[in-house]
Amino acid sequence: MPDRSASPTLDLQLTWRGAFGRVRVFADRVHAETSYERDALQPVPMDALRGWRIQPCDFDAVCVEFLTPDDTWRVLLDTSDEQVAALALRRVLGQPVPADS
């Protein structure tokens, strides 16, 4: 069982055009929440995760996309956080899925 009291190794968040997103990376898990394309702030169902990737959303934001069987959860991050987020997520979740075409 993961130690839920452990501090994250990376904690990124962004409020962008009224939407909030946060990705917290721990040594053994990832916690993410988003209000982007949602009615309210919601946690990403990481237990249903099938893959992840990072793609541009706009000139000033990137989307970390968490793919579940029923939905794509987009968490917005600043473009300057893209590389560090990718490294941290890859370490915990494995390789990203190919970019959406």
Rank of each mutant, 00 (worst) to 15 (best):
P43N: 13
G94L: 02
A86N: 06
T9Q: 15
S7N: 11
T9S: 09
F26M: 01
T79M: 07
L87G: 12
P96T: 03
R4W: 14
R91Q: 15
T79P: 12
C57A: 15
L14F: 12
D71S: 10
T34Q: 02
A19M: 04
P2N: 13
V75C: 05
R74D: 11
G21D: 05
Q83K: 10
P96C: 02
A88G: 09
T72Y: 01
A32E: 05
E33G: 00
V92A: 05
F59H: 13
L12I: 03
V23M: 00
S35D: 04
A19T: 03
P8M: 05
P98A: 04
R17M: 14
P96G: 01
P96S: 01
R53L: 09
L89N: 05
P45N: 08
A19Y: 08
R17A: 13
D100P: 09
A19R: 01
Q83N: 09
W73Q: 00
D60M: 04
L89W: 00
M1R: 03
D70K: 09
R53A: 08
V62W: 05
T79R: 14
E65L: 09
R17F: 12
L10D: 08
L67G: 06
L41G: 05
A48G: 07
E37L: 14
F66R: 01
A32T: 03
D58G: 14
D11M: 04
R29I: 05
L67Q: 12
Q55V: 15
L76C: 08
C63V: 07
F20L: 00
L10M: 05
R74K: 14
T72K: 08
P2T: 13
F20A: 04
Q95C: 12
A48E: 09
V84E: 15
A19I: 01
D11L: 13
D60W: 06
S7I: 08
V23D: 05
A6N: 01
C63D: 09
P43G: 09
E37N: 10
P8L: 08
R53Y: 06
D100R: 15
Q83H: 10
V62D: 14
L89S: 04
Q83D: 13
T68W: 00
W16H: 12
L49C: 02
R74Y: 09
V25A: 03
L49A: 00
Q42D: 11
D70H: 10
H31Q: 15
P8F: 04
E33H: 04
D78R: 15
D100F: 10
R90W: 08
W73V: 07
S80I: 11
S80G: 10
T34L: 02
A6C: 03
L10P: 02
P56V: 10
D60P: 04
E65F: 04
Q42W: 07
Q42I: 11
G18H: 00
Q95P: 12
R22D: 03
R74E: 13
A6R: 03
S5E: 10
V84F: 06
L76Y: 09
R74G: 14
G94V: 01
S5V: 08
L14D: 02
Y36K: 04
E82F: 06
W16F: 12
L87P: 02
D11K: 10
A61K: 00
C63L: 08
V84W: 06
G94K: 07
C57R: 13
D3L: 12
L76E: 07
E82S: 13
V64L: 01
P98R: 07
I54N: 02
A19H: 02
L14C: 07
R38N: 12
P45A: 09
S80W: 10
A19S: 15
R38I: 03
G21Q: 01
W16E: 03
